[in-house]
Amino acid sequence: MAIEATQGAVHEHTAAVAAQDEHGPVHHQFEDIEQQNESYIVGMWAFLVTEIMFFGALFLAYAVYRWKYPLVFIEAHKMLDIPLGLTNTFILLTSSFFVVLAVHYHKLNRRKLAATWLFLTVLCAFGFLVIKGFEYGHKFKVGHVPGPNFTFELPASASPEAKEQVTVERAQLFFGLYFAMTGLHGIHVLVGILILTPLAFMILKGHHHVVDDYIPTEMAALYWHFVDVVWIFLFPLFYLIPLH
């Protein structure tokens, strides 16, 4: 209202844009930093709810087929590499620990330490993907990737019930679910790297978007923990199916 009429609409607009660029920690739609931080955390959790449901549909599909074809799942899961899976679980749990330390040090405003732990998290993420890559590569080599070249052979020692239940198509179903679920998870790991790496650099440089407040780091960490939680379930469900 106080703006002069002669200044016109354009002036007010540019003023608004400028205000947006230099908004400091609090965006224009919020009253104070408390409201903004709480909004971001709730928003992040609402997003994680969608992520849970996103994976949820796959978990249901997994449960249905494991219930329907128990022997197929037992026989096919023997082709997965348990030591590698175990290593990957270890890596992801560790990375979760690292990222929580990053948040911790960001809260204490020790930016270098925060960035360091973030970089270590990213390192873990890369390690996870590399191991996953080896696993996938091996599956390609032996023809366990669903598609026209899929092959699956039961070991001769398999029980007669297994021989009756296990078909190539059903084994392909298992590997289809395996690739769908670990693949989707892998994409999330990749996205995590794409979020955490720039974040670490921005913290190091002192970019005001991320150092005014620790919430951006906390949100990235929440996402990363979620990725970890998914793997906590994927690992026993695929690699450690009870044989009995």
Binding site: A61, Y65, K68, P146, G147, L173, G176, L177
Partner: peptide
């Protein structure tokens, strides 16, 4: 995915439901 790779998650012919 099923259309592209013919996994058969939903195709009864391939064991799906």
């Amino acid at each position: 995915v099923e259309r592209v790779l013919h996994i058969g998650i939903f195709d009864p012919k391939l064991g799906g439901d």
